[in-house]
């Protein structure tokens, strides 16, 4: 059923999914993001790299309006997904977040069963017409998150009882279960060991078939491994943005080169 829908989507691989122009973010008096322009392509993994506090997570959170939950945060500029301004007054952030899913730095499964964790999104969005329908969605999401085989026998066990890597893949399953078009990942592997990281990275590469994935990472090796395009942020500015191979082998900006070679950051 899901495969059908994917086939129906006639999106060109090189089509631009998100267009951000002149984005500024203020936390109270702190100017966190300064005039950032980014085009994010569909069915591509885009990595945001940069030193701590450079604004990459803040910018990521602009893309599904998670900054709305912070009282002092103020976002200016123009962000469009498929040509629609997401900061338009008529846009309901709830609907936006169903379309732009998010995976957080720390695995944060709900203290409910594995099944309920994944089923929560489809339930509140009314994606399933019957129990069997919901079962299919849950299984499909868990399969896509490459965790189905590990949990299929204990779907009613608490999600918080899984290991860290499994929890993070459960969170990814939860995010893909709502059929998003864009998947935002905020340092998804920072709390994981190398083996779990490798599993999640493999998963990210598979997710690229269906989604536009934006990943924030501290690890340049990870960015080089999983992404096709990379954006380097520094002190709230987007310093350089381009093909990952180009950024890592032939950076145009000296700051990018310094960061990649380990001289700043």
């Amino acid at each position: 059923m899901n495969d059908m829908r994917i086939l129906e989507r006639t999106v060109d691989t090189n089509e631009v999914k998100i267009v951000a122009k002149g984005v500024q973010v203020f936390y109270g008096d702190n100017h966190a993001i300064k005039d950032v322009d980014v085009d994010i392509q569909d069915r591509t993994v885009t990595a945001f790299i940069g030193p701590s506090g450079c604004g990459k997570s803040t910018f990521l959170r602009c893309l599904n309006r998670m900054n709305d939950t912070i009282d002092v945060a103020r976002v200016e500029g123009d962000i469009r997904i498929d040509g629609e301004d997401i900061y338009d007054k008529r846009v309901d952030p709830v609907q936006l977040r169903a379309k732009v899913g998010m995976v957080f730095q720390k695995p944060n499964p709900f203290p409910k069963s594995i099944y309920d964790n994944v089923a929560y999104g489809p339930r509140i969005h009314g994606l399933a017409r019957s129990k069997a329908d919901l079962d299919n969605i849950v299984e499909e999401a868990l399969r896509r998150a490459a965790i189905w085989d590990e949990v299929k026998d204990r779907l009613s066990a608490p999600g918080t009882g899984l290991s860290g890597g499994q929890q993070q893949r459960l969170c990814i399953a939860r995010a893909v279960a709502t059929e998003p078009e864009v998947l935002l990942m905020d340092e998804p592997c920072s709390a994981l060991d190398p083996i779990a990281t490798a599993q999640v990275e493999e998963l990210i590469d598979e997710l690229r078939q269906n989604y536009s994935v934006v990943i924030v990472t501290h690890s340049m090796q990870q960015a080089a491994r999983v992404s096709q395009r990379t954006a380097f942020f520094h002190l709230g500015n987007l310093v350089e943005y381009g093909e990952t191979s180009q950024i890592f082998t032939n950076p145009q900006d000296t700051r990018t080169e310094s960061y990649i070679t380990g001289r700043i950051g």
């Binding site: 709830v94 936006l96 957080f104 509140i124 939860r174 709502t178």
Partner: peptide, 22 residues
């Protein structure tokens, strides 16, 4: 923990759903 609220909002729950469900 605020991560629970983030998780709920992240899958598209409204604020009220996040509070009452989680």
């Amino acid at each position: 923990p605020p991560s629970i609220r983030d998780a709920a909002l992240g899958v598209g729950a409204s604020k009220m759903q996040a509070v009452f469900h989680h």
